[in-house]
Design a protein around this nucleic acid. Structure first.
Lengths: 150, 150
DNA sequence: CCGTATCCATTCCGATACTG
DNA sequence: CAGTATCGGAATGGATACGG
């Protein structure tokens, strides 16, 4: 039996995970944000088997997250670049990164950080804000079903 | 051969995904944010096989994302609740939700939304901000390796 | 250099039956 | 109700060999 598809699931989180909820896709996307564009570079960076990488890249292209482009340098190969839809995953990656930084490193263990290119300062912690700009904790929010909207 | 563990990976995103980068874990956590606490409720909500659910819940407890508590009502069973580490995933879930809303629904298709409990208004779009509060696009940021920090 | 094809082991997943 | 046990099929993952 096949894995249940979530593309028809009513929840936006489920539909999102249907595209990128596997072990490798978000790592590929993270690399793409870091400027990786070539098959071999993804492969070396991730240490993933080539056939798996092929399948994942194809899926991401089919889902409109990556696109194939002619190479920027002279080489006759194509490159994988983020589409607008893919770029919209930036907050997801940053949130994951900050969660990882907070909970998976020992006190004296250092890790890379995300900085503003212009002033070299660390990016702010990503937050959930109300319409008037106040920080919201999970318990102060509520998921409202479409049927319950006016 | 086993899947390569990412717990020693230098990248915070990779370490995070080692805990929650599979198909079900983030959906379980989403449910937990929505107040689901009992085994059977997770099972019905997700439609996942019970043995898989068992394995995932165990992993999340072992990783300190969920904890087992005595039930709040009178029943003699235990409940799965988010730890502080688990609650810190809130921005990740919200970012995923907003990305899903933006890209996986047709024009007239409605979906649930996340609102502020106090005023019933929609939560702001999650953003990556510089230290002085300006919105940053992916290309305006840079990942700095620990070796390159002063 | 960029993939594709194939092989094999492991894991994942769903369904169902079962226990306390 | 909350799991455990087991089964079979599918997908995943790693390695390697091959082709344009």
């Amino acid at each position: 039996m096949q894995r249940t598809s979530l593309t028809k699931n009513p929840c936006p989180v489920a539909r999102a995970l249907d595209s990128i909820g596997d072990w490798w896709s978000l790592l590929i996307i993270r690399d793409a944000f870091d400027g990786v564009r070539r098959f071999g570079d993804f492969q070396r960076s991730l240490g993933v088997a080539k056939n798996i990488l092929t399948a994942r890249l194809r899926r991401l292209v089919a889902d409109g997250i990556l696109a194939l482009e002619a190479s920027s340098d002279g080489t006759p190969y194509q490159e994988y670049v983020l589409t607008a839809k893919g770029e919209d995953l930036f907050p997801v990656i940053v949130a994951l990164r900050q969660w990882g930084e907070a909970h998976f490193y020992r006190k004296n263990e250092r890790h890379s950080v995300l900085v503003d290119r212009h002033d070299n300062k660390r990016v702010q912690k990503i937050q959930v804000l109300s319409s008037n700009g106040k920080l919201l904790s999970p318990s102060e929010t509520l998921v409202k079903k479409p049927s319950a909207l006016e």
